[in-house]
Design a protein around this nucleic acid. Structure first.
Lengths: 226, 226
DNA sequence: CGAACACTTGAGAGACCTCAAACAGCGTGG
DNA sequence: CCACGCTGTTTGAGGTCTCTCAAGTGTTCG
């Protein structure tokens, strides 16, 4: 049973607009801007890996469909995150937008000679991040208890999404996305969030907004102990 | 509760014997041979990461102690596997031998100018393997059912350990190690193995030897479906 | 041969999953 | 403007599976 049978392959890239982009430490190359609506596919598992993407606005989910039919979301990409780096010819995950999203696409062209080492450093950095993310994911999935996984997920979202207010997060992804990331069912995710709310650890003013009221409790819940 | 409270820090490296080593594609440098007995510590989480290791004989487990006190084995290293690569100053896992083990230790010295790119390639290769391993681990932990995890673990061991006979594996690690790798209890691992035996999918002639009688069944069990 | 250790098996409790139903937000059409 | 339907979310009840606690079996080593 596929969690969300919505893998629509829509390739409506706007005509690539060549323009100079801000030169941040990790991307010193020219790219093209790609604007996508909600639930559009950037690339699919198995596609040729020809471009590297950087989120300028919005959010993307990276997922795999497992042989059993379940969907596994390996990671999310938010503003300033890179994704799509592969070291062989094909993508190993599918990338889909969670909401309206603006991406910077960098074509993977043969780099100039003087850019070679810089390109290399960029690859190593991206690999490091991907590896760290995968290892953190393993740690989260290592907790058998749903509360610990959800708490760890919220802690990670605090670090990545709480621009400005450190106690408020706007989750762009659906409950189902969270469930497929934590390898739980959507009901268990909902129940865990409700438990946290009843325990006065968080508040849920609206569906996708979470207010952290007790970061310490959330942190301790991360370990599975209470 | 720590699964196996046996993290003994024994540093009885034999005096490093400088000698030329076989020049495989991934290690074209001089190293020193390290001989360790069972359950000895190669390095611990937090130690300075100064060396890269390669298993010449035996096996090593790479583990973390989580804040809650549980042990998580992130990976195993068998013959010809490399481990210990870190991109910052400290190791993020603890490495312990599973049985009598011989390692090739390569000091992480500042590489010569002409070796720089080669060293770089080596790092990228190691990162790729670590990343693939972490992603595969995530997929295994994604299965909520114990049988699927154990089946996936056995399939992975077939690929990595079945030298010669593709249907026989000699597992060097203990049941507790397997449990801490799959994030299950030792009892559940035992029960899953017994179930597989009763289902005539595997045979267990001795504790650490497993004979695969029906690879197809094992493969399908990997998905969680039956 | 005995003791320590690792492994296996059993019984009961708790947690998550499955199935089901109710609720809320949102856009559409009357 | 409101009814309606659709989608996504939340809550409830029961079953199944794993974990906990416990006892028993087999191996290895002194």
């Amino acid at each position: 049973m596929i969690s969300t049978p919505r893998a629509v392959m829509t390739e409506n890239f706007i005509p690539p607009i060549r323009q100079p982009i801000d030169r941040s430490p990790t991307s010193q190359t020219i790219g093209s801007i790609v604007r996508l609506a909600t639930h559009e596919t950037v690339f699919m598992e198995g596609d040729d890996a020809q471009s590297l993407y950087r989120v300028m606005a919005g959010a993307v989910r990276l997922c795999k469909i497992l042989p059993g039919g379940r969907r596994l979301i390996t990671d999310f990409a938010f503003k300033d995150d890179q994704f799509g780096l592969e070291l062989d010819a094909h993508h190993k995950v599918t990338a889909e937008t969670i909401g309206p999203t603006v991406l910077l696409r960098t074509r993977r062209c043969p780099p100039m000679q003087q850019e070679q080492t810089e390109f290399h450093d960029n690859i190593v950095d991206a690999l490091r991040r991907d590896l760290s993310a995968a290892q953190a994911h393993v740690v989260i999935l290592g907790h058998p208890e749903a509360r610990a996984r959800v708490a760890a997920f919220l802690m990670s979202m605090i670090r990545r999404l709480s621009a400005g207010h450190p106690h408020t997060i706007d989750l762009p992804m659906s409950r189902q996305d969270i469930a497929d990331h934590l390898c739980l069912t959507i009901e268990t995710v909902c129940r865990s969030l409700s438990e946290l709310r009843r325990a006065h650890v968080i508040d849920i003013p609206s569906r996708h907004r979470i207010v952290i009221k007790d970061v310490n409790s959330l942190e301790t819940m991360t370990t599975g102990e209470e």
